[in-house]
Design a protein around this nucleic acid. Structure first.
Length: 565
RNA sequence: GCGCCCGUAGCUCAACGGAUAGAGUACAAGCUUGCGGAGCUUGUGAUCGAGGUUCGAUUCCUCGCGGGCGCACCA
């Protein structure tokens, strides 16, 4: 709706003033309602028309003949301000939303194109902590955002189940935990072992060699070490599955390093023979110095493999098998150089697909960097337990009449919302300082606030029944907040587009919060029930539209909006 | 040393190069005979520094200062 109005205005100006070149994107939202609904800064236009900005604004304002939705125009200094026909705008906006329902806002910039979004690249045999959570939530949101803008988005995960970290964990397991009873949460148990292993390995002079030996045995895929790997690998994978299920995050495919590494080894051998890879200081490397990208190690001096050995065949396999237009990797920004190297190598090998690395900053704690070694981590398991406890308490306090099961069900939605929103509401260039009390607060700029707004709307709708929603008399909406709500709703499509284009779900999160706040203003000053029948019907239609957009926006962030909470 | 990111209110974060830099939180004072008080209202409070580009800079460029992260056997 807004985009259409902007386009019409732009072409109107361009038609009447041949030297003008106004684009849809030139319009801005005025900082103050007195200045109207849309505004055109005339500075560039002034250059095009060779006059002062104020003159241009004045001239256009006087000469232009308005049509459609715009009912008034006025020049304010160098700005040309447009005022919309409010009642008409309300009707058209709400009609569109109520008709399109949860499809409202979907874009088509990615129409017909396929993109793979790889995220949640966790390691088995290691701790799963809030750092991984950011990756998971951000990746999921980006994938859904792209889906909403028309892409066929294919979310995948790539699990590193074959690296040296595995050998470290198994070494410590054999040494210190072999006789211990295995707890129920086996993946978490492995994480604890890994955390201990790094310190123990430093203390033990023979350890490094022993770890190397274990790695070789695993890579040979024979013997008790390999069987232990098979067994423990499952523990981690089960843990991941449980986490994905708790957070309602789905992958179309999960790749494992152990499944592509053999292809990688073959490829490395071929590349060595063609001198693409060369020996240097005992290791096998790709020399990318002439591209300003340093060198990339493929094999260690002892012959064990590093990341690219598996990453390269996987990248090729993905593009070929899934016929991708684009391949996106969502990985911690600290690996930026690595991905530049990886993409350069793929290019040199003749693969020309569009690839992008979306690097986000890491998560630290108020007490400093997370580190398994010093125990300064918030593991996923602990966070979940703490969060659920708080949400159950809070929900229980408000609903003494609910069953335990009912309370827990809603509490889980609140917890998932809190975790995801917290991880996604900050731009990716910003390091997240994870404060558990802040993260699990349900007040202010939080998912709970948005869910609460949604629940309030549901509560009103439930009181009278959705059958009373009536979009035949939308012209009854004459209040200021009613118009402000419509206007906010009309911004949704372009917000989605912007959010997706920038791979930035925080833009959407911000928008949803703004929308909810406008609803709160409306809710405070305008009573939905308690007017004449037609007005009530129209107001129900309005709040139903708010509900649709809130629920849809939250869903893109991976968050469920319950009807009651 | 080379490269990347960040620096905005006490704290955590916003602001396509556009009008008076917005929120949350914390703190202070209020709001219940009205659809859910996980809410609402009011107040206090900020662009690291110096240049430059521009009609206009939190935003772009240069140089400082401060913090973080990469850069060959860690993953």
């Amino acid at each position: 709706m807004l985009s259409k109005i902007k386009k019409e205005l732009a072409s109107l100006v361009n038609k009447n003033f041949p030297s003008a070149e106004v684009a849809e994107t030139d319009f801005v939202f005025p900082p103050n309602p007195e200045f109207g609904d849309l505004s055109l800064p005339c500075f560039n236009l002034a250059k095009q028309m060779k006059k002062s900005p104020a003159e241009v604004a004045k001239e256009i304002g006087e000469k232009i003949t308005l049509r459609g939705m715009v009912e008034k125009v006025s020049a304010a200094g160098p700005y040309l301000n447009f005022f919309l026909a409010k009642e008409k705008f309300n009707s058209l906006t709400l009609d569109k939303i109520l008709k399109e329902k949860e499809k409202y806002g979907n874009g088509k910039s990615g129409k017909g194109k396929r993109v793979m979004v790889e995220f949640s690249n966790a390691n088995t045999h290691k701790e799963y902590h809030v750092g991984h959570l950011r990756n998971l939530c951000y990746g999921d949101a980006v994938s859904r955002l792209l889906g909403a803008s028309g892409w066929k988005a294919i979310p995948v995960s790539y699990i590193n189940d074959f690296g040296i970290h595995v050998a470290k964990t198994l070494w410590a397991y054999e040494k210190f935990y072999k006789k211990e009873k295995i707890p129920a949460n086996k993946g978490y148990f492995l994480g604890q072992i890994y955390a201990r292993s790094t310190g123990e390995i430093e203390k033990d002079p023979k350890a490094k060699e022993e770890v190397g030996a274990i790695m070789e045995k695993i890579e040979s895929r024979r013997g008790p070490e390999y069987r232990l790997w098979e067994k423990t690998r499952k523990w981690s994978i089960e843990q991941f599955g449980k986490i994905y299920k708790q957070l309602d995050i789905k992958f179309d495919k999960i790749f494992y390093e152990s499944e592509v590494i053999d292809d990688g080894r073959k490829m490395v051998e071929e590349l060595r023979q063609s001198n693409f890879l060369v020996k240097s200081q005992g290791a096998l490397i790709a020399d990318l110095e002439k591209y300003g990208l340093g060198v990339l190690l493929f094999l260690r001096s002892d012959g064990t493999a590093l990341y690219p050995v598996a990453d390269i065949p996987l990248a090729i396999k993905k593009v070929k098998k899934y016929k991708l237009d684009k391949s996106i990797y969502i990985v911690d920004v600290r690996q930026s150089l690595y991905f530049k190297q990886l993409f350069k190598i793929l290019e040199l090998l003749g693969y020309k697909q569009e690839m992008a690395h979306l690097g986000y900053e890491f998560v630290k704690l108020p007490s400093g960097m997370m580190s398994s070694r010093t125990g300064n981590v918030v593991t996923y398991e602990n966070l979940w337990a703490e969060a659920l406890g708080r949400a159950v308490r809070e929900t229980g306090k408000r609903h003494a009449d609910w069953s335990k099961k009912q309370i827990e069900e809603v509490a889980k939605k609140i917890v998932v919302g809190a975790m995801k929103f917290e991880m996604v509401k900050v731009g990716k260039e910003q390091t997240i300082t994870f404060d558990i009390d802040r993260a699990l607060s349900f007040e202010g700029f939080t998912a709970a606030y948005l869910q609460y707004t949604h629940a309030r709307i549901c509560s009103i709708l439930k009181k009278v029944g959705t059958g009373k929603i009536d979009s035949a008399h939308l012209d009854k909406l004459k209040e200021k907040w009613e118009y402000n709500l419509s206007f906010a709703l009309a911004k949704f499509p372009e917000t989605l587009e912007k959010s997706a284009a920038a791979y930035n779900p925080a833009v959407l999160a911000d928008y949803l919060y703004e929308l909810a706040k406008v609803f709160s203003d409306f809710y405070r000053d305008v009573r939905v029930l308690g007017a004449d029948r037609e007005t009530v019907g129209a107001r129900l239609a309005l709040i139903n539209a708010v509900k649709i957009v809130l629920a849809k926006g939250l869903k893109i962030l991976g968050i469920v909006a319950p009807d009651k909470m």
